[in-house]
Deep mutational scan, measured.
Amino acid sequence: KRPMNAFMVWSRGQRRKMALENPKMHNSEISKRLGADWKLLTDAEKRPFIDEAKRLRAVHMKEYPDYK
């Protein structure tokens, strides 16, 4: 299984929150909104998620060195 990218790290928490706030919203609509919201974030706002994704990638490479 591939490590999560920055968007996936960020959206994991946001998806739960949005689903709780909008229980009747379909998952596909939540995904569209999350994508739009992510694009509106500044680089500074994205930085912690980018850093976490880099950390996850490094751990994955160490655990699965032959993964392609």
Rank of each mutant, 00 (worst) to 15 (best):
R16W: 06
K17H: 05
N5R: 02
D37V: 10
K46P: 01
L34P: 00
M18Y: 10
P48D: 02
Y64F: 15
M4Q: 12
T42R: 05
F7Q: 04
M25F: 04
N27I: 04
Q14L: 02
R47A: 14
V59D: 05
W38T: 04
W38H: 07
I30M: 10
F49V: 01
I50Y: 13
E63Y: 06
R16K: 10
N22E: 07
D37R: 09
R47K: 14
T42F: 00
W10Y: 01
N27K: 09
N22M: 05
F7I: 00
A6P: 06
R33Q: 13
M25I: 06
K1D: 11
N22P: 03
W38E: 02
R57P: 12
V59K: 12
W38P: 03
D51I: 09
T42E: 05
N5E: 11
P65L: 11
Y67R: 13
K62N: 09
P48M: 00
P65D: 14
K1E: 14
R57S: 14
K46L: 00
K1S: 07
M8V: 09
E52W: 01
Y64T: 13
N5I: 00
I50G: 03
K39E: 10
P65N: 13
P48S: 09
K1A: 09
D43V: 06
A58T: 13
A44M: 09
D37P: 03
R16V: 11
K54F: 12
D51M: 09
W10D: 05
K46T: 02
A58R: 09
W38L: 03
P3W: 01
M61E: 15
A44V: 09
W38I: 05
S11L: 04
L41F: 07
K17C: 04
G35S: 15
E29R: 01
E63R: 08
W38R: 02
R2G: 10
N5Q: 04
D66C: 10
M25Y: 00
R16M: 10
R12Q: 15
I50W: 03
E63Q: 10
K24Q: 09
I50H: 06
K17M: 06
R55M: 08
M8K: 06
K68F: 15
K1P: 10
K68I: 03
K46M: 04
V59I: 07
W38M: 02
W10Q: 01
M18V: 07
I50P: 06
R12M: 15
V9S: 01
Q14F: 04
V59S: 08
F7R: 01
L56P: 03
M4H: 07
V9N: 02
N5W: 03
M18P: 01
A58F: 05
I30S: 00
K46S: 02
A44E: 14
A53L: 00
M18W: 10
L56F: 06
V9G: 02
D66K: 08
R2Q: 12
E45T: 00
R55V: 04
Q14Y: 03
K68Q: 13
K68T: 10
M18A: 03
F49Q: 02
F7W: 02
K1T: 10
K54Y: 03
P48T: 00
I50L: 08
E21K: 00
E29D: 05
L40H: 05
R57G: 13
G13M: 14
E63W: 04
K62S: 12
K46N: 05
R55A: 15
P3Q: 14
H60E: 15
D43S: 07
R47G: 08
H60I: 05
N22Y: 08
H26D: 15
P65H: 11
M18Q: 00
K54N: 15
Q14D: 08
K39N: 07
W38G: 03
G13Q: 13
L34V: 07
N27G: 12
R16Q: 14
Y67D: 06
Y67M: 13
K24V: 05
R33E: 06
A6S: 07
W10V: 02
M4E: 15
K24N: 09
A53C: 03
K68V: 08
A6M: 03
D43I: 07
V59R: 08
V9C: 08
N22C: 06
K39L: 12
R12K: 14
W10R: 00
M4K: 03
K62Y: 11
H26C: 13
F7G: 00
S28M: 03
R16F: 00
L41Q: 02
L34T: 04
N27D: 13
K24Y: 00
D51A: 08
M61I: 08
R2M: 13
L20E: 15
R2I: 14
H26P: 12
A58L: 11
I30Q: 05
P48V: 01
L34W: 00
A58Y: 06
Y67F: 11
D66E: 12
Y64L: 14
R47N: 03
M4G: 09
K39V: 06
S31T: 10
E29A: 07
Y64C: 15
A6T: 02
K46H: 04
M25V: 04
R57H: 08
K54G: 05
K39S: 08
N22D: 12
A6G: 14
H60R: 10
P48R: 05
N5K: 04
F49K: 03
